[in-house]
């Protein structure tokens, strides 16, 4: 019954591989590698596309033109120029830094950002690891991103970086809780943490954004905080602590941070789409197209946030999480429970 384009394409690749090798185990391993390759290429491509998109969206909001020199009138080759610049930059290693931890940090940051892509249903059946506790694993892995930030901040031997690292811990930990609690509403409605089941439930009923508006808003706010984007970009707050944990990084190491940031942006948008906007479901157009349309809309929303809002202050941000979002998420859980009970007893 699965008939998405992605799955059909995967079927063709599997056919070709079976024809070439024949051994089922080998083909399975190769298919996994193909999946991983596809996800990595999605992340890398999205980083390239989003740098350009972010520049253009930002320019649009700031009454500017944006990139317009490299690659024609619309500056389409700007990301390439950016990339070349980053690659050709000197790799500066600050004096007195903890070399091992310092160089590990950008790489480690990229791991959880990339890992969570295996739980995303890109299309009907196109999901790398459709495990029973998908959502739970996803949250658990994405929260690991705290550590590389702290490592980078600690190892840089810079006060700005250290403050940034400490802020990351405070921010990520305090926004982890309301985020998890807001998603419990979705899980309660679905009765499963399996990602494909959550999408299926939205196809049979309606998008969860309508059933769980409070959870959606809480999730949106916490997601912005988790990705360190304005108004919660206190970690890399350029007007106070220069660039937080990234202050001392340059060249490709910095580019890795950047890559992880855009990977996080994409994953957060995908998660919103999957959990609240019905995933790949939609009329007429194929599933993959719907999926990417929704994701791009969400990405635009996040960019819109970033280029409109000022930054909050650390005390405001923390008290907002613990005093507003968390109680609200708990109330939302209660309301969802009552709603489900009423629905079941009435129908």
């Amino acid at each position: 019954m699965h008939n998405g384009i992605l799955l059909t394409a995967a079927g063709w690749i599997r056919d070709i591989l079976t024809f070439l090798f024949g051994n089922e185990l080998l083909v399975n391993i190769l298919m996994t590698l193909v999946g991983i390759g596809a996800i990595i290429s999605v992340i890398l491509t999205s980083a390239i596309v989003f740098t350009y998109a972010e520049r253009k969206v930002c320019a649009f909001m700031q009454v500017r033109i944006g990139p317009n020199r490299v690659g024609g009138r619309f500056g389409l080759l700007q990301p390439v120029a950016d990339m070349l610049k980053l690659m050709s930059k000197e790799d500066i290693i600050p004096n007195g830094c903890d070399r091992v931890v310092w160089s590990l940090s950008p790489m480690l940051l990229f791991v959880p950002s990339a890992l969570i892509y295996s739980f995303f249903p890109f299309d009907d059946g196109a999901i790398l690891a459709d495990v029973n506790v998908g959502l739970f694993l996803l949250l658990a892995i994405s929260s690991q991103a705290v550590l590389p930030f702290l490592m980078g901040g600690y190892a840089s031997n810079s006060k700005y970086a250290m403050i940034g690292g400490m802020r990351t811990v405070a921010q990520m930990l305090s926004y982890e809780a309301p985020m998890a609690f807001s998603l419990i509403g979705v899980v309660m409605l679905t009765g499963s943490m399996k990602m494909s089941a959550i999408v299926e439930a939205q196809a049979t009923h309606t998008w969860f954004v309508l059933l769980q508006p409070i959870a959606f808003v809480i999730y949106l706010i916490t997601a912005t905080a988790e990705t360190n984007r304005t108004p919660f970009d206190l970690v890399e707050d350029e007007s106070e602590i220069v660039a937080g944990p990234f202050t001392e990084y340059s060249g490709m190491r910095w580019a890795l941070f950047f890559l992880a940031e855009y990977a996080n942006l994409l994953s957060i948008s995908i998660l919103t789409t999957t959990l609240f906007l019905g995933g790949w479901h939609g009329p007429v157009l194929p599933g993959a197209v719907w999926f990417w349309l929704k994701v791009l809309v969400m990405i635009f929303v996040f960019m819109w946030f970033r280029w409109t809002f000022p930054r909050t202050r650390i005390d405001q941000m923390l008290s907002f999480s613990w005093k507003v979002l968390l109680p609200l998420a708990l109330v939302n859980m209660l309301l969802t429970g009552v709603g489900i009970y009423l629905y079941q007893s009435l129908c």
């Binding site: 700031q62 009454v63 007007s239 930054r311």
Partner: peptide, 16 residues
């Protein structure tokens, strides 16, 4: 002031 509070968009408007 806007850019110091992180609202870089406001700064572009005033400079315009």
């Amino acid at each position: 002031l806007a850019i110091d509070l992180g609202a870089s968009t406001g700064m572009l408007y005033t400079f315009r």
